[in-house]
């Protein structure tokens, strides 16, 4: 649910990072936070457990500048990936404008990727969204690991509508901004249609 404020000349969009536990969602946000000018970003809020697992969400507000005289603001959220936090994931998806699915490239995590993707589809549907039509991008993270599956294999198993797909190493920033940019573009293009 984009919030268009004609009075303050602002648009606000919500983007959610989804994916299985430990796939690197929080790491994506941390990289974006570290690499953005201080005046373009707010605080990074992490509601996490003592072991740095996301408990409820991470949140980062990002000012991208102006389009057609409107200040463009993206609110980035991550969900907790661990299976038993499903109730929290549903809450975070409320009002979402675009989704980034972060997949873990390690072979033993493929099943968790698929399960999480199905969970995303189901939770979106509950809110009245359709994964097939919502602005959406796919990221294969942890490409640096020796156990990483070939990207082609992953593409065949996870890409389902030709969505923009990126290989990433979130730890060193590879692919992080490309993924965000792709989804931001889709979200803004969606606005155009309205």
């Amino acid at each position: 649910m984009t919030f268009i404020n004609y009075a303050a000349r602002e648009i606000n969009c919500k983007i959610v990072y989804y994916g299985p536990g430990l796939c690197g969602k929080t790491t994506n946000l941390q990289w974006i936070y570290d690499k953005t000018n201080p005046q373009a970003k707010g605080k990074l809020i992490s509601l996490a457990t003592e072991t740095d697992r996301t408990l409820f969400f991470d949140f980062l507000p990002l000012d991208l500048g102006t389009v057609r005289g409107f200040k463009t603001r993206f609110h980035l959220y991550t969900v907790p990936g661990q299976v038993f936090y499903d109730a929290s994931r549903k809450l975070i998806l409320k009002g979402v404008d675009g989704v980034i699915f972060v997949a873990d490239s390690q072979e033993p995590r493929m099943e968790a990727n698929i399960e999480s993707l199905q969970n995303l589809e189901k939770n979106l549907k509950e809110q009245g969204y359709d994964l097939k039509t919502i602005p959406y991008a796919l990221q294969f993270n942890k490409r640096d690991l020796p156990t990483a599956l070939p990207a082609d294999d992953m593409y065949r198993q996870l890409n389902f509508k030709g969505e923009p797909t990126f290989e990433a190493v979130a730890m060193n920033g590879t692919g992080v901004f490309d993924t965000l940019k792709a989804v931001a573009k889709l979200v803004l293009t969606e606005l155009k249609k309205k």
Binding site: T2, N5, Y6, A8, Y129
Partner: peptide, 13 residues
């Protein structure tokens, strides 16, 4: 979209 976008105008603001 599930919920209509929230729009704010000068008068109501």
């Amino acid at each position: 979209m599930a919920a209509p976008d929230l729009v704010m105008y000068e008068e109501e603001y």
